[in-house]
């Protein structure tokens, strides 16, 4: 029985929320607008929140060099998918073991998991280890493996798994089911919302990763989407060089560089922004369960 709020404060509340939402959305709209603007107009008037004219030139130019873009998409999608499947499985398996109160080495395993959360080797030793000893430079594994196991995901999943009544598992054991059967046939199906939450975080981690390529990838063929975007910001020369090599004969004056950069940005960020609102329910659930520790 909450008291109704009178009109004045109610209006203030809604104005506040609308302002917050605008603040979040306007920068995104700006980038989309610029990507559809004509470069001539940008050169004259500068960027605008709303499109200056409406042309698809920027996208045409980006896709003229489409092989590189699709390659980057391919790398990102491949790494994200592999990371999603193996990450979900491996994090869930260890989380399940930790959720079993009757597991003999539960305490030791918990400590093993927590130490990396409070202490890490940091950039320099990791870099030397990865490049000199593991030889992971310029491999897809450098983008995949180091992000695979995340203690926070394990704790999140363990919390969910602990809520499954142990009588279910005991009954299955009596029926002669092994641990793997219990895990795959009983635990995982019951933990779908938890898996969705963690799956979303994993997808986000891989899709938005640009740091691993920055550290470990020089080979253009292995650039992922975000890293290609980063490179583009670092030097627009990249694109010009590519078109010069492919002999397309685009003169620099013709290049719609300003709008093209923003088009590339839309292409890289777009899919996540379109997909994620649909999974927001799980996201919020995950944060509510384990957000404090994140």
């Amino acid at each position: 029985m909450k008291k109704d709020i009178s009109f004045g404060p109610k209006l203030a509340i809604y104005i506040f929320l609308v302002l917050i939402c605008l603040l979040c959305v306007i920068p995104i709209i700006t980038v989309i607008s610029i990507s559809f603007s004509s470069d001539l107009q940008i050169a004259k008037e500068g960027y605008g929140i709303f499109p200056k004219g409406f042309v698809l030139d920027a996208y045409k130019y980006v896709f003229k060099d489409s092989e590189a873009i699709f390659r980057s998409y391919g790398v990102t999608i491949l790494v994200t998918l592999m990371g999603l499947v193996s990450g979900l499985l491996l994090n869930a398996m260890i989380a399940y073991v930790l959720s079993r109160r009757d597991y003999r080495y539960r305490k030791q395993l918990t400590v093993f998991l927590i130490i990396p959360m409070v202490l890490n080797g940091g950039l320099v030793p990791t870099y030397i280890w990865m490049t000199k000893y593991l030889n992971l430079k310029n491999t897809i594994w450098a983008m995949l493996l180091p992000l695979l196991i995340v203690p926070w995901f394990i704790i999140l999943l363990r919390t969910f798994f602990s809520e499954i009544p142990s009588s279910l598992m005991e009954a299955a054991t009596v029926d002669g089911a092994g641990e793997f059967t219990i895990f795959f046939k009983i635990v995982l199906p019951l933990a779908k919302p938890a898996l969705a939450t963690v799956g979303m975080f994993i997808t986000l981690n891989y899709w938005n990763d640009w740091f691993q390529p920055l550290m470990y990838v020089d080979n253009r063929d292995l650039y992922n989407l975000q890293y290609r975007l980063y490179i583009l910001m670092r030097d627009v020369q990249e694109m010009m060089k590519n078109s010069a090599i492919s002999g397309m004969g685009i003169s620099i004056a013709d290049m719609p560089t300003e709008s093209m950069r923003m088009a590339m940005c839309v292409i890289a960020a777009g899919p996540m922004l379109v997909i994620f609102p649909f999974f927001q329910k799980y996201f919020v659930k995950g944060l509510t369960v384990g957000g404090v520790k994140g």
């Binding site: 398996m93 093993f112 202490l119 890490n120 030793p125 280890w129 493996l145």
Partner: peptide, 15 residues
């Protein structure tokens, strides 16, 4: 998972 943590988290700590 334990093995991956060992390789990518523990060894750098020693490093």
């Amino acid at each position: 998972a334990t093995l991956l943590l060992f390789i990518f988290s523990y060894v750098p700590i020693v490093g």
